[in-house]
Deep mutational scan, measured.
Amino acid sequence: MTEYKLVVVGAGGVGKSALTIQLIQNHFVDEYDPTIEDSYRKQVVIDGETCLLDILDTAGQEEYSAMRDQYMRTGEGFLCVFAINNTKSFEDIHHYREQIKRVKDSEDVPMVLVGNKCDLPSRTVDTKQAQDLARSYGIPFIETSAKTRQGVDDAFYTLVREIRKHKEKMSKDGKKKKKKSKTKCVIM
């Protein structure tokens, strides 16, 4: 069974824990209790493949930012979460993405942009803004509501699919490099 290491990042209060708990335990946590770091595991079937999701729910508070490099190193894919009623959390996505790329030393890291709290009427981040940002990053965008469960499975499952595509691409690139290195030079 394939294991996928997913990391949920975003500013404090955007609903990272609520999304994760909704996926794992099928219930909505409405009281806000700032996370330092929590880890969850769940076995699911995605596109006919049974897999184990190892999900790291991270601290959004700035005082825990020193811990970010460590979990970013171990993560295979990242859910970059903002709240649709919090423009600052949307603007912060850029910083999370840049930090992930720096730590992973790669421009090509599996990510999904997630606009959470889409059940709320007080939207300050337009869907088109988020779609445009995701398009500019070359990553999928999904709106979710941890409260109603809308888009929750889709967000995590899409990230797994992005990781699969990335692994497939990397193995193809690896095979191309191996083929090239088999060419021999004969000096007579």
Rank of each mutant, 00 (worst) to 15 (best):
E63R: 05
E63L: 02
E63A: 04
E63P: 12
S65E: 12
S65P: 13
A66L: 07
M67I: 08
M67Y: 07
R68D: 15
R68Q: 15
R68E: 15
D69S: 06
Y71Q: 14
Y71H: 14
M72I: 11
M72C: 06
M72H: 07
R73A: 13
T74E: 15
T74D: 15
T74S: 12
T74L: 07
G75M: 09
G75W: 03
G75C: 14
F78M: 04
F78Y: 08
F78T: 02
L79T: 00
C80H: 03
C80T: 03
V81M: 14
F82A: 12
F82K: 00
A83F: 01
A83C: 05
N86S: 10
N86A: 05
K88V: 07
S89D: 09
S89C: 05
D92W: 15
I93V: 08
R97C: 15
R97S: 09
R97V: 15
E98Q: 05
Q99R: 07
I100V: 07
I100D: 01
I100R: 01
I100G: 01
I100P: 01
K101I: 06
K101C: 06
K101D: 03
R102P: 02
R102K: 09
R102W: 04
V103W: 15
K104M: 12
K104S: 11
K104N: 10
K104Q: 11
K104D: 03
D105Q: 10
D105K: 08
S106T: 11
E107L: 10
E107F: 11
E107W: 08
E107C: 11
D108G: 06
D108C: 06
V109D: 01
V109W: 04
V109G: 02
V109P: 04
V109C: 06
V109S: 03
V109M: 05
P110D: 01
P110S: 02
M111A: 01
V112M: 04
L113G: 01
L113Y: 04
L113E: 00
L113C: 07
V114W: 00
V114A: 03
G115L: 12
G115E: 04
K117Q: 13
C118W: 07
C118N: 11
C118L: 08
D119E: 11
D119L: 03
L120R: 07
P121H: 11
P121K: 11
P121T: 13
P121C: 07
S122T: 11
S122R: 06
S122G: 13
S122M: 08
S122I: 07
T124Y: 09
T124P: 09
V125H: 09
D126W: 05
D126A: 07
D126H: 07
